[in-house]
């Protein structure tokens, strides 16, 4: 083990983790695999953890480092009996996959827990002065993260290190689960999502907005990590980005195609994206690619009063219509 974090992190966290492990122990004999998180190459990181045998369960760790949305793995495991541990936001991706018939409900066992938020590694990296190599120690409480790196100790306020999506989270508890460990925090789905950042950006002038994206996407290396991390990018090997038929994008290194790809991604996610933020988290050059999806969701919400990832039986708004659309005012010529 040797992970200093797990020894010092006591309290509720430990209690529900044990309950969660018991849940998984109960269910595992009927399942091919259960996906959760465990410690990784250093104490500041976690990694997806595939539990096949009972002893694997001991390694399971839930913490603010459990950033990955594990739902991304589900379509690839179709046909197998899969258990999955989900944060509130992750569970909404599961709902979407169910809605789109990309996974079968009877094959999936969902383990929920009350999520109090996960960290944004980019923020930590910044607080650590830009490099996160050689982490020797990491301890987390509700209020702070204590990190030792190269003989220097840092005490970072937890609230400032949380991912943006967590500070305005309305779904801390899984919206769908077969087992739930710990006490529910309480979802606030009836409240509106917070799109203040999008609105602020939209107040910029046209050249400022256009110029901003050109500058941001200039960094893009077309690695498609954003797409690969997206739980709803289900086309996989047949993504429009790398196809000649249809031939939406060239393979040239130009900012036009980079920008176009993000619009394609956002539009393909319209009415489906749950804003789990995996695209932005995965981006190795920190391009704020989530904003396009947030804007799309804002429009979907305002026009159709629809939010993705809540109801597995719902029909996404762009796959349906009304004869009379209450919130669409067509241009009068």
């Amino acid at each position: 083990m040797g992970n200093p974090r797990s020894e010092s992190n006591k309290g509720d966290q430990v209690k529900f983790q044990e309950e969660l492990k018991d849940n998984i122990r109960k269910a595992l004999p009927e399942l091919d695999v259960v996906i959760g998180w465990c410690g990784s190459f250093d104490p500041l990181h976690a990694t997806p953890h595939f539990m096949r045998r009972e002893e694997d369960i001991d390694k399971l760790e839930i913490s603010p480092l459990s950033v990955h949305n594990l739902a991304t793995y589900l379509p690839g495991l179709r046909g197998k009996k899969v258990g999955i541990v989900v944060k509130g936001c992750d569970s909404r991706s599961v709902v979407e996959l169910l809605q789109e018939n990309l996974i079968n409900r009877e094959d999936i066992t969902i383990f929920g827990f009350p999520c109090t938020g996960v960290v944004d590694q980019s923020k930590i990296k910044k607080a650590l002065g830009g490099h996160t190599g050689n982490i020797e120690f990491c301890d987390m409480s509700e209020s702070v993260i204590v990190i030792k790196s190269e003989d220097k100790a840092y005490t970072l306020p937890m609230a400032e290190m949380l991912a943006d999506k967590c500070s305005s989270c309305r779904y801390p508890d899984a919206v769908i689960s077969d087992y739930f460990a710990g006490e529910k925090i309480g979802n606030k789905g009836e409240e509106d999502a917070d799109y203040a950042a999008v609105e602020t950006f939209e107040n910029l002038s046209v050249p400022e907005r256009f110029g901003y994206w050109l500058k941001e996407f200039d960094r893009c290396i077309r690695c498609y990590a954003c797409r690969n991390a997206c739980p709803l990018c289900v086309c996989r090997d047949h993504c429009a980005a790398e196809s000649r038929d249809p031939h939406w994008l060239s393979q040239e290194n130009n900012v036009r195609d980079k920008l176009m790809f993000q619009v394609i991604h956002a539009y393909h996610l319209a009415g489906r994206c749950t804003e789990c933020g995996e695209c932005q988290r995965a981006c190795p050059v920190d391009i704020p690619v989530l904003m396009f999806k947030q804007k799309m969701n804002k429009e979907i919400r305002d026009t159709f009063q629809y939010e993705a990832g809540v109801d597995p039986e719902a029909t996404p708004p762009l796959l349906s219509f009304k004869m009379k659309e209450e919130n669409i005012t067509e241009k009068v010529w």
């Binding site: 993504c239 429009a240 196809s243 038929d245 249809p246 031939h247 939406w248």
Partner: peptide, 14 residues
Amino acid sequence: CPQGAIQLQHSTDN
């Protein structure tokens, strides 16, 4: 179709 798997012939995406 997001992946362009179904194409209307004579009016394909391409």
